[in-house]
């Protein structure tokens, strides 16, 4: 059973990682806890759901639709709620992002209603036996999409000019600007990428749990923040590994100890890690890992 539970942990962790990557990228370039990120995840799930229900699209179209729409939402968020807000006051942008959270959640409740909705079966359910574990077609699909996405993102940040610019801005805004990096553009691109990934993560979560609700973003937002702290603020590799770690801890404690103690165990581990490694597992504020 332990192997099967590890697979469960991996699945849960993959969605935490995808959300945390967005948080950490935005934190890296703006030093901002972007609260609305969880709601972008929720919007992505609903766009995926409606692409499937209304247009009868397959899962790939749903993923693409959510990615594009959430990317656009990210761009809109920068233009409408980040740039106009004073950077001099450290709390202003945070408050603005809380505002976006409330607006997105209430819009979703207004449009879709306050209830959970079933995510239709878009991937044919089949079970495969791999040694001691049984893995389903849905799980394989989600893992493949998550791993490919993380690999592309890693390559983008490590190997492209824009990736280098993002890392430079994360290191130091002023120096990057002096060296000719267009900081505004970097911030915009970071938001678009982070939001697009959150959109995909939302659809994957809908597929994994077979339902979506306007309240799904809040819980994920909190977990994403925990993962970001665990992995190291602004550290993409940290977010990837931290997400998987959190998923594993949650599943194993739910399976062997009990759900009521789960959060206690999770946060106790988090506190211990931060006591011994205050900058997180992979160090803070660099996007390339330490």
């Amino acid at each position: 059973m332990i192997y099967q539970q590890l697979i469960n942990g991996l699945m849960l962790g993959a969605s935490y990682s995808l959300v945390a990557i967005g948080y950490t990228l935005i934190f890296g370039v703006l030093n901002l806890l972007y609260f609305a990120h969880g709601e972008v995840f929720m919007v992505g799930a609903f766009i995926g759901l409606y692409t499937v229900i209304l247009a009868g699209a397959n899962i790939y179209v749903a993923l693409a639709g959510a990615m594009i729409a959430c990317g656009a939402l990210g761009a809109l968020a920068v233009v409408a709620t980040v740039r106009p807000v004073s950077k001099d006051h450290p709390l202003a942008q945070l408050i603005s992002s809380i505002g976006v959270t409330i607006v997105l959640q209430n819009m979703a409740i207004y449009i879709f209603g306050g209830q959970q909705m079933a995510f239709p079966e878009t991937i044919k359910q089949e079970l495969y036996r791999l040694g001691p574990v049984i893995i389903s077609s849905v799980q394989i699909f989600i893992l493949v999409v998550a791993v490919v996405l993380m690999a592309i993102l890693w390559l983008f940040i490590e190997r492209t000019k824009m990736g280098r610019a993002i890392r430079a801005v994360a290191e130091n805004h002023e120096t990057a600007a002096l060296l000719g990096v267009n900081v505004n553009r970097v911030v915009l691109v970071t938001f678009v990428i982070s939001s697009a990934i959150a959109g995909i993560a939302g659809v994957l979560d809908g597929v994994k749990n077979s339902n979506v609700s306007p309240f799904m973003g809040l819980e994920v937002a909190v977990k994403g923040l925990v993962v970001m702290l665990l992995g190291g603020l602004g550290n993409v590799t940290g977010a990837m590994v931290g997400g998987i770690l959190l998923g594993m801890v949650e599943i194993l404690s739910a399976a062997y100890i009990g759900t009521t103690q789960r959060d206690f165990i999770t946060f106790a581990i988090l506190i211990l890690i931060l006591l011994f490694r205050p900058s997180g597992l992979f160090g803070t504020r660099t996007t390339e890992g330490s």
Partner: peptide, 10 residues
């Protein structure tokens, strides 16, 4: 909670 995989596996 939205993930019940641990309980079902058990």
């Amino acid at each position: 909670d939205t993930d019940y995989s641990a309980q079902i596996t058990r």
